[in-house]
């Protein structure tokens, strides 16, 4: 297991729980280490311990974020979540026996909709992934995929019937991704769904799902159920991927045009020297020490 100080992901913020989930104390794992989250009754004092050591804490989107190393001063934003009429709901966490990067790559993938989310996010024969754009935004150090479109029979709870849905994907953090999709309730606005992968080990995660929706008709429970249904369909795929860690060597798997975002994501992890949850490309060992 890779626990060296030089591993860049050790110095990132990672989600460990939703504020609401913690009933006093919650024990969980972060990158192979046991951490304890304590929340006072009125949600005022939130502390995360690693042994006796108090770890840094940020609360954002209703989630508690911490770090085992020296994290940057701030964490990425999802500005839409602050809009007054948004419904912000967490749907998770879901434990998955996969690496955080495999989960992120799956989240960025549209080609699997007809096969894994059959009759909901996609249906045969509408399987085509039209060309889309991916850019690496240097200033923000995040990946942005735009002009993504996919035909969906039932894109969200609020959608009636099939339609071509527009997507925008952001990867603002090596283990977090945010998607924006045309809202079924208001065509001019975008629903937001995010995945924050908490790496409990190199090959297991707690997937925290965050929804920020334009939806006036469904209850939180119904929205959660829908998202859990979808993610529950991805789970067995992720758990049947081998190797579980994401291979960064271009020769390890076979990408196609539809995988552009995954190609850029893998390169980006390589260039950032992320060694956790990945199999580095040969000759590009980064800081990883795998035992």
């Amino acid at each position: 297991m890779n626990r060296t100080e030089s591993e860049p992901s050790r110095h990132l913020w990672h989600p460990v729980a939703t504020v609401a989930e913690v009933n006093g104390t919650l024990n969980t794992m972060l990158m192979g280490d046991a951490v304890t989250v304590r929340v006072a009754g009125d949600h005022s004092g939130i502390v995360v311990f690693h042994g006796d050591r108090k770890l840094p804490v940020i609360v954002r989107f209703g989630f508690i974020w911490t770090s085992l190393g020296s994290p940057p001063s701030d964490l990425f934003e999802i500005p839409e979540a602050a809009e007054a009429d948004r419904r912000n709901v967490s749907a998770g966490p879901v434990g998955v026996a996969t690496s955080a990067p495999r989960a992120i790559e799956n989240f960025l993938d549209m080609a699997h909709f007809p096969f894994v989310h059959t009759d909901i996010l996609g249906a045969e024969p509408h399987t085509e992934v039209k060309d889309y754009d991916v850019e690496l935004k240097e200033t923000e150090n995040e990946i942005l995929a735009t002009r993504c479109r996919f035909f969906q029979p039932m894109a969200a709870l609020s959608a009636a019937g099939g339609m071509e849905v527009d997507y925008v994907y952001r990867v603002p953090h090596p283990f977090c991704a945010v998607l924006y999709k045309s809202s079924g309730a208001d065509a001019r606005r975008m629903d937001v769904i995010a995945i924050f992968a908490q790496p409990t080990s190199e090959e297991s995660i707690r997937a925290h799902l965050f929804l920020s929706m334009i939806d006036t008709t469904h209850t939180d429970s119904e929205m959660r159920r829908f998202q859990q249904l979808i993610f529950g369909q991805d789970k067995p795929i992720l758990e049947n991927q081998r190797p579980r860690r994401l291979p960064l060597d271009p020769r390890s798997e076979t990408p196609i045009r539809a995988d552009l975002s995954s190609i850029v994501y893998r390169r980006w992890l390589s260039s950032r020297n992320i060694g956790y949850g990945v199999i580095p490309a040969a000759g590009q060992s980064g800081s990883a020490v795998h035992g």
Binding site: A91, D220, S221
Partner: peptide, 10 residues
């Protein structure tokens, strides 16, 4: 009738 067992504890 959906019952939000996790995380809602309904």
């Amino acid at each position: 009738v959906p019952v939000d067992v996790h995380p809602g504890r309904e």
